[in-house]
Design a binder for these strands. Structure first.
Lengths: 239, 239
DNA sequence: CGTGGGCTTGATCTCCCTCAACTAACGTGG
DNA sequence: CCACGTTAGTTGAGGGAGATCAAGCCCACG
């Protein structure tokens, strides 16, 4: 029935998305999709927690623009290794990596109840001027995001990685009108571990260590950032 | 004077690029740029080894399509950490990650004498139908490549990473008409280490171990793949 | 009420990082 | 052309962060 708001919303910002008047999220390329798509016949689709939006191997049907909810994109190799590549949120795209393919290479799952809008490049590029340009911009921004994480995972230790993840997650929620300090980690520890290239046990231990340092508070999937400045400092420390 | 061919060319395929009749490289999105750009006034630029094509922080001037040579793209964080993100070759783009930005976020250096063609999206999308679509396709393919490497770096050990790197490099050279078994590693051990998220010493030791196993032969920057099938098996072994 | 998936904690081990010293090649200026 | 400084590559020894293995816990679910 759609009521289970899994993130703590700020009173002031919480209503904005419902009215469709929220500010542009993700500075630059991510913004103003709503305005752009106005008047376009859009297929909107609601998805439930744990439901697949895209399955690897399925024929390419188009992209999906996240309207609400948090998702998980995972790449699978032939030999069965799996890796979470992203946790898309509102304003971000699902299936972008398949744009020039006949089949999707990734699984995309809802971690949350949510809504996605189907975007079909073949149709939209004709009826929306600037659509393809915006799309390219978002792809470029995804590449930068990936490279940032490659850099992080290659040069940071476990504690700094987890910290970076929490800060990134918090920031992105804040950009969308949710609280930056109170949130639900709707992904499992295994998902986080997969994304950060570390084992579940290490994720758990690291979170605990951050709690011991008084930087965060965790209870199950709920997390509160206690000392944001220190956390920021933490993630930047060179070892 | 441009003659220093740093890669071992096959006799048959070696002349093709010069005549401009080489087959499309990189299946799908990478191909047929030559045809597409035919008749377009293109700024072609020759670059020497170690020369910067793009400097991080410079204002965005457009993309570059690699026509020859091998390049190195490196992301730098505020606190000075650096990470090699790619080693682009012919048919691949430089500066794609800056498409929606005002300044380039990455350094791009020539590891080799080479040639690049300047592509200015603002101009080209008007005079070339399908330009923006092709561009999007290449960006999507870059995202997949990044995710593949994220998967590899997160789940493979040092030996498997180096093996994967060698195989990838060899394959890409072969796709461009060079030998798949005899090649010049025009990047330094440090570059490889940065790309594979491991220390120089580990790269060196791992290469040596592969040589001891009779899979490759290395002398300085020259490398020969002796046992390609075994190398392929190596990279896929689950530990 | 039981079952199982997700989570937590402890003990051990190992792969790779780190530091240090050295050699080999390069290129630059005398 | 050589001498020298500089950068790239190599090798060894040792330690530590995180992987691995094993066991138990907790809550949500049927």
């Amino acid at each position: 029935m759609w009521d289970t708001a899994s993130h703590v919303m700020l009173d002031t910002a919480g209503v904005a998305p419902v009215l469709g008047v929220q500010r542009d999220v993700v500075g630059g390329s991510g913004g103003s999709w709503e305005r752009l798509l106005q008047g376009t016949p859009l297929v909107k689709r609601r998805v439930r927690r744990k439901q697949h939006v895209i399955r690897a191997g399925q024929p390419f049907r188009g992209l999906f623009l996240v309207q609400s909810g948090v998702f998980k994109s995972a790449l699978i190799s032939e030999d069965g290794r799996e890796r979470v590549t992203a946790f898309p949120m509102r304003g971000e795209l699902l299936g972008q990596e398949a744009l020039d393919l006949a089949v999707y290479p990734c699984h995309v799952t809802a971690l949350d109840d949510g809504e996605v809008w189907e975007l079909q490049p073949f149709l939209l590029r004709q009826c929306i001027p600037g659509f393809q340009e915006r799309l390219s911009g978002m792809l470029a921004s995804e590449i930068r995001r990936d490279w940032q994480w490659m850099l992080a995972l290659g040069s940071l230790n476990a504690e700094q990685r987890v910290t970076s993840f929490l800060l990134d997650y918090s920031t992105r929620l804040a950009e969308r009108g949710f609280s930056a300090t109170q949130m639900l980690l709707c992904m499992t520890r295994a998902d986080i571990g997969s994304f950060l290239a570390m084992q579940i046990e290490t994720v758990v231990r690291t979170l605990h260590r951050l709690q011991d340092q008084g930087l965060i508070e965790i209870s199950r999937s709920h997390i509160r950032i206690v000392d944001l400045p220190s956390l920021r400092a933490q993630s930047k420390t060179l070892n």
